[in-house]
Amino acid sequence: MNFRRLFLILTPYTWLLVFFLVPFAIVFKIALSDYAISIPPYTPQLDLSAGWEGVKSFFGELDFENFTFLASDALYYSAYLSSLKIAAIATLITLLVGYPVAYGMAQSSDEWRPTLMMLVILPFWTSFLIRVYAWIGILSNEGFLNQALMGIGLIDSPLTILNTNIAVYVGIVYTYLPFMVLPIYSALEKLDGSLIEAAEDLGCSRAQAFWLVTIPLSKPGIIAGCFLVFIPALGEFVIPSLLGGSSTLMIGKVLFEEFFSNRDWPVASAVAVVLLLILIIPIILFQRNEQKQREAGL
């Protein structure tokens, strides 16, 4: 062990400890504290000047009150459930929209692929906020969609889409589509075409070959894409607050408002801790899928 190596390891390590791990410890600690009208607005505060007694009384005052509050208040309970539901349905729609795009890309000719690839990645570099904002003008009552639908005489009066859950679904599918397309595309691209030919030679119809060969072989890509959409969608804040209405309950928005509007830091922290606990399961499943992929690749 030499100094250089130690320095090399310690620089990023210390940074992450101080700015990533310690903040989470603080969130856990404040989640166990109580709301108070003071600066900062929670109690107890660790008083080191009182020595050991101070530390003891500090830990004595921490409790799980906020978590019981979250469990008893229907607002939080239904916000978690509705976030899970919205994220799950949106992920499914993104899969249904993204799979044909990825499939079409994988089947296109070699000279087209880099261009198509860039066209999928380009929106990812463009501001997320702007991409969500673009839909406000389309979905509002006087928006382009309603104008177009009324123009062709399909509807008589404008449909209310903006500020409903439908707009939230549209927003999630739109902004997260590249995350779904890219992993599925990379799975489909590696797929050995002779397998499909073999299936067709052995008497499968094209649809059967697709269902029995292509889909199972692209499963790792499908799983990766679904997690890449589901995980961030669950804690999404921008989309529900710009496209959703007052009845759209999503936990990211609840947390943001709890913190900034109600200034209830302990409850906001408890909301964050529970969200983290919910996310741990999909995150571990996602890591396993990636691990398996890596091992299969070797």
Partner: peptide, 20 residues
């Protein structure tokens, strides 16, 4: 610690940072 921030919801990262 390197991989966690990639999947962490922004609201949680933001809250944790501010409290620090």
């Amino acid at each position: 610690m390197i991989y966690a921030p990639l999947v962490m919801p922004e609201v949680i990262t933001g809250l944790a940072m501010l409290l620090l």
